[in-house]
């Protein structure tokens, strides 16, 4: 690119002595961004192209494009194991966990932030102590608990403890912080209009809490979607598998990966999320920005 063509696009806003500096800075920025984005974007390109290769072309030297485009890998994804069912499992579990977490954390967050009752701060401090505690700490006793409830080989241990356990507590904490900064006047006005607590929460508080609800929803959904240890421990029946377990099961009966099929499945697991993200990208970022999430 030559210098002239760069200048031809300059707008009037950029005044004399700054032009070159600013442009240089911008160029430098672009250069950095492109460089840094390579390791983020390349795996997707590679994943996609390899999923179209026959197994004999998967190994050895890396090629940027498959020599033959083979879509049969994508058919085998579904023949090898019930991938569509695994997909459904992952989606419904993540949606259910997200919805239940939103309900639970909105109630609890609002209760802690806006209602005075005996023990409020004591209960909240109790919750706080486990805010930093990942589920991995209690995986052994939780396993015994789940087993004694007869929940192994069901989806319940992926749903209930996610909603009520540490992840749920983080959600409650975030909701509480948001509701704390809520103006008293709004609530008072609502009370004068004769609204009860549920009414205030439903009609006044929640509509205003959309950004934080969005943020909690995104984080919860991703948490459930990514969950690996719990399904690994609790699920044996292949029909109950979620996507992460499913992906790793594309192996022959001796545990050797069937790379091209595995990668085709990986692509299928990624694409819908990418589309959702690209469509909703602005809302997602804005909801983080307006959630007041800052610690």
């Amino acid at each position: 690119m030559n210098k002239n063509s760069l200048h031809s696009g300059s707008s009037a806003r950029w005044q004399m002595p700054f032009i070159s500096n600013r442009r240089l800075f911008a160029l430098l920025k672009y250069f950095f961004l492109i460089l840094v984005s390579i390791p983020f974007i390349f795996p997707f390109w590679w994943m996609f192209t390899t999923s179209l290769k026959p197994i004999s072309d998967v190994f050895g030297q890396l090629t940027l494009l498959p020599e033959t485009w083979l879509f049969s890998n994508y058919i085998e994804v579904f023949q090898f194991q019930p991938f569509a069912l695994h997909y459904f499992n992952s989606v419904y579990i993540a949606v259910l966990v997200t919805v239940l977490t939103l309900i639970m954390s909105a109630l609890a967050g609002y209760g802690f932030a806006r209602i005075r009752f005996r023990g409020n701060s004591l209960f909240f401090v109790m919750l706080l102590t486990s805010l930093m505690m990942p589920i991995e700490v209690t995986i052994i006793p939780n396993f015994y608990l789940i087993q004694s409830l007869g929940w192994t080989d069901t989806h319940l241990p992926l749903i209930i403890p996610s909603v009520l356990g540490p992840q749920g507590i983080v959600a409650t904490f975030m909701m509480r912080q948001f509701f704390l900064s809520f103006p008293d006047e709004l609530e008072d006005a609502a009370r004068i209009d004769g609204l009860g607590r549920f009414g205030i929460l439903w009609r006044i508080a929640l509509p205003l809490a959309r950004p934080i609800l969005g943020t909690v929803a995104i984080l919860t959904f991703l948490g459930s979607w990514n969950s690996f240890l719990e399904p690994l421990i609790y699920l044996s029946n292949q029909n109950l598998f979620t996507i992460p377990l499913s992906l790793r099961s594309y192996t022959d009966s001796y545990g050797y990966p069937l790379w091209n099929i595995q990668l085709a499945a990986t692509v299928l697991s990624v694409v819908p999320m990418l589309i959702v993200f690209i469509v909703a990208q602005r809302q997602i970022v804005n909801s983080f920005a307006r959630s007041g999430l800052k610690g």
Binding site: S148, G150, D153, N237, Q238
Partner: peptide, 21 residues
């Protein structure tokens, strides 16, 4: 017939055998 991938066989077997079903 319940298929458990070989890599997890040992773990899943122990979990299932000590469980309620």
């Amino acid at each position: 017939f319940v298929t458990i991938p070989f890599a997890d066989y040992q773990t899943k077997l122990a979990i299932e055998l000590s469980g309620s079903n």
